[in-house]
Amino acid sequence: MHSDRPACRCVICHDYGDRHEAGRLDVRTVEQVHEHGWSVVMVPADDEGPAFAYTIGLWHSHGSPELAMFGLDVRTMQAMLNIIGHQVAAGASLAAGQERHDVAKGYPVVLKDADLRWYRTFFGRAIAFYRRPPFPVLEVVWPDGDGFFLWQSESDERYRQSQPQLWLTPAQHPAGVWTALADS
């Protein structure tokens, strides 16, 4: 279907012989990918760390990188990821470094490549869907209230802890909640 990328090895495109063993959530993901082109996995905040959300199916359905967001309310992130998903379905292409002004009211977001070494920490259900990396993931990074991003020295310290910097390897990432999750 998408000749410019490797053959899709997801559970929809390839029968691994274990579909009858799929859990309820995995079946729901497949149904949503069939119906909408993607699904959004929402992981609420807990004692281990802030909330995050990510897509499954954009790579399968549209040849577009999957998307991930961190540190906001899961419903807010779901809505923002769905906005971008609808744009992809309408033909928009996504790339690392891209700044988008049509996702968060009044603020831009920036797309950044996620390093493969973070995948097992955050994207387990996507790995189960695709059966293995590589599938590209872009982190959707939102700015602080003053419009500064994580990599800008003017950004607030508390804000810098709200999102990981997945474009860095876990070894390069500043120590904190995100590296603690990667180590566990």
Rank of each mutant, 00 (worst) to 15 (best):
M69N: 02
S64N: 02
I83L: 14
G85I: 04
G63W: 04
V103G: 07
W142H: 12
H173I: 07
V177R: 00
S61P: 13
G63Y: 12
S61W: 08
D73M: 04
L150G: 10
D115I: 01
L166N: 12
T179P: 04
V110T: 15
P143I: 05
G63M: 13
R131P: 05
L150P: 05
T121K: 05
R131M: 07
N82G: 09
L166T: 11
E157T: 05
R100W: 04
G97R: 10
L94V: 02
R160M: 01
P108S: 15
L94Y: 01
Q172V: 03
G106K: 13
E99Q: 12
R132P: 10
A128P: 09
E139C: 07
D156H: 15
D73E: 14
V88N: 04
Y119G: 10
V110C: 12
F129K: 05
R125H: 12
L111C: 02
R120N: 02
T169H: 11
L81P: 04
R120P: 10
S64F: 01
M77R: 13
Y54F: 12
I84Q: 01
G71E: 04
A104L: 14
V137H: 02
E154D: 13
W59F: 12
A114R: 09
K105S: 09
Q163M: 09
F122C: 14
L81F: 07
P174G: 09
T179G: 05
W178I: 00
G147V: 08
V88D: 00
L111K: 09
E157Q: 10
R120H: 09
D102Q: 06
S93Q: 11
L94G: 08
A95V: 15
V141I: 13
R117F: 08
S162V: 06
P134M: 03
V141Y: 00
L116R: 05
A180H: 06
L116F: 00
R160Q: 11
F123L: 13
V140F: 02
P136M: 03
V109F: 03
M69W: 02
A92F: 01
A68Q: 09
T55K: 05
T76R: 09
A171N: 08
R132Y: 11
Q152I: 07
Q172R: 12
